[in-house]
């Protein structure tokens, strides 16, 4: 489910012919980096393919090379240690939703990933792909930002770590260099009375790209006072964005309707959307506030239930 006509940030349309295109499936991170290094700048990392193959079909890209990262063990595994949940970049939505621990610890991230496309797309679409396709409307991204995810990036100089909100440069653009790719995402393990949630608005019940997305994470103390919070919005600006003002409105308070109204106002202030085939500026701004409130409420319910 690619966000077609997403913007001008796609790699150049390319002059390659379909007949010239190649495919490699390295089995190690190092081999993948080497394959990228050896290729020209029209090589693409290939994971689930649910965005790239649409872009190929719609003549939006003409890659010289697909580097399939699904045969690399690090991209394909979910691990949980004392501090973090690590999700391989090529883990599919279906695999993530079958991972009971991930689902229990990070319900918001998992439900965001589950919203990407149909059951068939879920069998292929990956967390890393949804992130690196860099659609402003990508469902997983606000949830990952709210949960505090950082990306493990492999490149010629080894691994580096970048917060998800800092990875995105604009519609269809990331801050990855041509020889780098995301290997996995590390998300801090929520503490007790800490939980996340994600909601999006689409005009149908399924099979649409988010018109607005809202991811929320909250931590409550024993008295129900919010001690930490992150709210992130999707599809209301060139990239998914963190809304610090919304967090400020919640931290140190018991979250009542007045606080929620401030959260909504902060969310709406953070919007810089466009009119397009999926929604209007006014609609997006209003609904951003609505979904911010709803997502925070769900996160609070979940935190309280712990």
């Amino acid at each position: 489910m690619t966000d077609r006509h997403a913007g001008s940030g796609l790699k150049s349309r390319g002059t390659k012919t379909l007949q010239d295109m190649n495919y490699e499936a390295p089995t190690s991170v190092e081999a993948a980096v080497a394959a990228l290094a050896a290729a020209d700048d029209e090589a693409h990392i290939f994971a689930g393919g649910t965005d790239l193959l649409v872009q190929l079909r719609e003549e939006m890209i003409r890659p010289s090379l697909f580097v399939d990262i699904k045969r690399i063990i690090e991209t394909r595994t979910i691990t949980v240690d004392d501090t973090h949940v690590r999700i391989g970049a090529a883990v599919t939505g279906a695999e993530l939703s079958e991972h009971d621990t991930a689902k229990t610890l990070l319900p918001g991230v998992v439900e965001a990933v589950e919203l990407i496309g149909s059951a068939q797309v879920q069998g292929r679409a990956t967390v890393g792909g949804n992130l690196c396709n860099a659609s402003p409307a990508a469902d997983s991204v606000p949830a990952l930002i709210a949960a505090g995810a950082v990306a493990q990036i492999a490149g010629p100089n080894g691994l580096r770590v970048v917060a998800v909100e800092d990875l995105l440069a604009g519609p269809s653009r990331t801050n990855l260099s041509g020889n780098e790719f995301v290997v996995s995402l590390d998300i801090p393990k929520p503490t007790t009375r800490s939980a996340d949630a994600y909601l999006r608005f689409i005009p149908r019940t399924e099979m649409d790209i988010a018109v607005v997305g809202a991811g929320a994470a909250v931590t409550l103390d024993a008295d129900g006072i919010c001690t930490a919070s992150r709210l992130a919005l999707g599809a209301v600006a060139p990239t998914a964005r963190l809304v610090p003002a919304a967090a400020m409105a919640m931290i140190g308070k018991k979250i009542d309707d007045t606080v929620l109204a401030s959260v909504a106002a902060a969310a709406r202030d953070a919007c810089n959307p466009i009119d397009d085939k999926r929604g209007t500026v006014a609609f997006r701004i209003h609904v951003a506030g609505v979904l911010a409130i709803r997502a925070v409420k769900i996160a609070i319910e979940r935190a309280e239930a712990k």
Binding site: M1, R4, H5, P203, R204, T205, E206, M207, D276, K277
Partner: peptide
């Protein structure tokens, strides 16, 4: 409720696929 042809200011069709030409799906 949702189906329509959407053009940009150069009269190019914006929703050329089932993704954004929103026909009802089973859950709708």
């Amino acid at each position: 409720l949702n189906e329509e042809y959407i053009y940009d200011d150069k009269a190019r069709l914006q929703n050329t696929g089932f993704l954004d030409y929103r026909m009802p799906v089973a859950s709708d």
